[in-house]
Design a protein around this nucleic acid. Sequence first.
DNA 1: GTCTATAACTCGATAGAC
DNA 2: GTCTATCGAGTTATAGAC
Lengths: 223, 223
Amino acid sequence: MTDGTRSKLMAGALTTLVEHGIAGASARTIAAAAGVNQALVFYHFGTVDELLVAACRHGAEQRVAAHRERLDEVRSIRELLDLSRELRAGERAGGHVAALAQLLAGAQTHQRLATATAAGLALWTDEIEEVLLRVLGETPLAGLVDIAGLAKAVSAAFVGLQLYEGVDVAGADAAFGALEQLVGLVAAFDELGPVTARTIRSRLRRTAAPAPSTDRSDRPAGP
Amino acid sequence: MTDGTRSKLMAGALTTLVEHGIAGASARTIAAAAGVNQALVFYHFGTVDELLVAACRHGAEQRVAAHRERLDEVRSIRELLDLSRELRAGERAGGHVAALAQLLAGAQTHQRLATATAAGLALWTDEIEEVLLRVLGETPLAGLVDIAGLAKAVSAAFVGLQLYEGVDVAGADAAFGALEQLVGLVAAFDELGPVTARTIRSRLRRTAAPAPSTDRSDRPAGP
DNA sequence: GTCTATAACTCGATAGAC
DNA sequence: GTCTATCGAGTTATAGAC
């Protein structure tokens, strides 16, 4: 299951993206990382880009599947905070988001990669949306912000923070810290008595944003 | 001022990053975009990487300077929301954040670029931090979250959202929309009577996050 | 399926004329 | 400072032996 030249090449592609970036992801470096002959890239995938597309799909499915159980048992904002810390710690070792970031950078000027990365990211946003709905569903926030949009924002922001961490570790720590404080506030807000929450909710609703949309007209699109 | 081969090359480098990505930013393509001879890249900058470093620095300084006036006159969360919409609209045309995103992707595996992009990003985070301090200073939020960290998070998240927009425009719209609703809530919160705000503040303080740090031990660092 | 060999090309970088 | 010409290395991709 972990073997087979195709799998080795896809895994090699992902590690190459992390170690050499999208600019260094050539058929030769990938094949070297996979421990197979360079010509096999073209035999199995036709082009390097197609290998990257396959690797993106494969990697995203694998990672989401690996975390699904853990995601499904999140029931509160506090637990969500714990999980996000775990995910970040695991990411330091595995570098899966780092690979996605490189693919996303390459996708900006490459139609074929764009649809692939959009699909890969969608796997994450769908999962995150479910969790957010479960966790924020009973919160005053639920009626006031578009949870589906928020899930997308969270995914995209995480990629940006991952890139930032690559050039300024201390800065990224501070950034994550501030966001944790922010989420902690929402949790505290949630833990206020239901009466207080109801009061705040009605007062906010009077002054605040437009009603959240329930549209479903999203998904992929090329540049 | 806009002329001189050096300037043309730096401008050419930035447009090349947007149009061909970091993977396609070669001396030849950059020189073509700048309308000058390929050998001049090496005469003026020694290597392509050094040109990218210079372009990063030049571009960031130029963009921050171009927006400083506008940033300095932001006095409320609502105005901040308006400005962020303007910035995003301008970005669609100019692609300056898109270039930064490509540099950041390249920086993940390139020490020299890492310090340059970290410095470029720091120009933005410093500016954003000032604005956030001015706007959130009197808000209950000020004592509860680290504003410096929040500024870094905002910058990094914006880069991530820019990359996301490159592969899913509708998704990015939804993401930005949700974030606007969220910020709108903070604004509404801010506009509640001071008495209500005080009550909420004290209640939150009891259950919520740790005290914000005032540390200054951040800035650049290589991978 | 996997290997070697190689064609056709682009890359960074330099030498040298002007 | 700017140009042409070019070297050597690395690139995608294919042909053909095994």
